[in-house]
Each structure stands twice: as C-alpha cells, then as structure tokens.
Design a protein around this nucleic acid. Structure first.
Length: 271
DNA sequence: ACGAAGCCCTGCAAGC
DNA sequence: TGCTTGCAGGGCTTCG
C-alpha cells in the first residue's frame, strides 16, 4: 500500500516524463473514488502545461497555470506512464494523455484514492490546510512531538499516525519506527519523555529515508512509476512478522490491534 | 478538544 | 471446485 516512500518514489519516477508536457486529453472511466473525480476535469486540464510535481504528505500535486491536479493513491493506487496505445484494464480509472505520446494512467482496484482539481493556493485547501509537518523536513522534530503529546492519552502509535501531528506515517512505517526506537506502540503518547521522542523522530526520518532510497515497499499491488516494484519489504523488521523471531533478541514478536490497525512489536526490545 | 468507531472498496485467504 | 465470509487498510467523518 502506498505510504509516503511509495508516493515519493512515484513522484521521482514520473516527474521527468510529465514536467513541461502539455495535456492533450483526459479520459475518466470511473469517477467513483474516495471522492468523485470532477466531471469537468477534462475541461480544466486540457491544454494545460504541467509545470511542477510536488508532494504534500501522501498527496501528489501537479501544478498548472489554471490550478492543481491533486492525486491520492489510497491503499492500492498507482500512477504509471504507458504508451497511448496500451489498452486500459478493469481498474484503470483515469488516463491523462500527454503531448509526448505517452499517457499517465491512474489505477486503483480498491478505489480508496482520489483525483481532484484545485483552484487557488493548494495549502489552503481543506484536505491540506490542517496537515502537520513533513517528516523529512526540519519542521519535524522530537521536541515538536513532545510538546504536542502532553496530556494526550492516546497510544503513541495512533499519535504519530495522526496527520495533524506529522504527515505520511502510515501503519507499516509506524510499526517499524517504534521498533527502531524501542517504544511500545500502545504506550500513552503523553507519558513519553522528550529524550525518547527525539529518538522516535529520528527513527521515523531514517525509516522513511531508507525506504525512499530503496524504491518503496512492495505489498500486494503497489508498482512504482516505472512499472518496477520496490523492494523495501525485505527490510521490514516487524511489520507482517507476528509470531516470528525478533531481529534483535530472537524473542517472539507480538501482534495487537490499536485503533483497528495491526501492530507488531517485541515485548523485550520495546518498553 | 480529544479519542474511538464508522465508512468507503476490492482482492485475497480461509472455511464450508 | 465453487461458494460465502472475513479481513486488510488510509484517512476523513461522525459520534460520544
């Protein structure tokens, strides 16, 4: 499932092929996504030149003169460049034809993703204006986590997955970062020291950075922008490894559910 | 303001 | 083999 590293990998993979290209045509085959794809997307986007491609959290923003195309990959979404003659499959919901002869194809079997058109400053959009700092920026720190967590009784894992606190930390990397930092996922956010939050913030940065370097995790249906799967899943220490041996102490990894999400941790290494 | 549950959707695995 | 059932998961939305 696309987490921040997969979204960033997609951005890096497709950017050279979409920047400075002009949109020739837009085909919306299935508008029923997380939110409906606007019916007038073709009218908005046609003839526009894509000037920029950036990311905010897990949202991709294609900048044009008239506005921004915003894409979220949800759980099973992907964006790929294919030649204009490649026939669409069952879950290929949107094609954006470019003047290069390629088209940018949005695929999303589970349809948890979204394609939206924004006018005006994207930072002021409802879905973006409440978002916390980017985890890989200097705005994000252990000190920030510590301050925001005081008096919070929620589990630290839910806390770091809250997009108002920090964006882009999904279930997989929350598990990995907490393991790396030696913190139990169910520990109350407000009862963790400044020192430990510094370790945790660094762990989040490291885990995400490594995953980006390795091309994003492959799980089920994610495929990167160039059609090649990522291979970070081999490096996952705890996610999906319940009942297996802890990579550090060889004890048995435990699985619990926190806010309906699978949470795997080591009873010995995480306290 | 906070915390937890609900919801959207399909592919896959397990059970019969 | 073919059905049914349950589950996963991001993250916004609603409820308490």
């Amino acid at each position: 499932m696309p987490e921040l590293p997969e979204v960033e990998t997609t951005r890096l993979g497709i950017a050279p092929f979409v920047i400075d290209r002009r949109v020739i045509k837009v085909e919306v085959r299935q508008p029923k996504l997380r939110w409906p794809t606007p019916l007038d997307l073709e009218a908005r986007l046609s003839a526009q030149r894509i000037e920029s491609l950036y990311r905010r959290g897990k949202y991709l923003l294609f900048g044009c003169k008239a506005g921004h195309l915003m894409v979220h990959l949800g759980m099973s979404g992907s964006l790929r460049l294919v030649s204009a003659t490649t026939l669409p499959g069952k879950h290929d919901h949107l094609d954006i034809h470019l003047d290069s002869g390629q088209l940018l194809r949005y695929t999303d079997p589970r349809r948890f993703g979204a394609v939206l058109w924004l006018e005006g400053d994207p930072a002021e959009h409802k879905l973006l204006c409440q978002l916390g700092p980017e985890p890989l920026s200097s705005e994000f720190s252990g000190e920030g986590l510590y301050c925001l967590s005081r008096k919070r009784t929620t589990a630290v894992k839910s806390f770091i997955m809250d997009s108002k606190i920090v964006v882009g930390v999904g279930n997989i990397y929350a598990n990995e970062a907490l393991f790396s930092a030696g913190i139990r996922p169910q520990r109350q956010a407000g009862r963790i020291s400044r020192r430990r939050y510094e370790i945790l913030a660094n762990a989040i940065k490291t885990v995400l950075q490594q995953a980006i370097q390795q091309g994003g995790t492959t799980l089920r249906d994610f495929v990167g922008g160039d059609g090649k799967p990522g291979y970070f899943s081999q490096s996952l220490q705890v996610y999906g490894r319940a009942e297996q041996a802890c990579p550090q102490c060889r004890g048995k990894l435990q699985e619990i559910r926190i806010a309906q999400r699978s949470s795997v941790y080591c009873l010995t290494c995480q306290t």
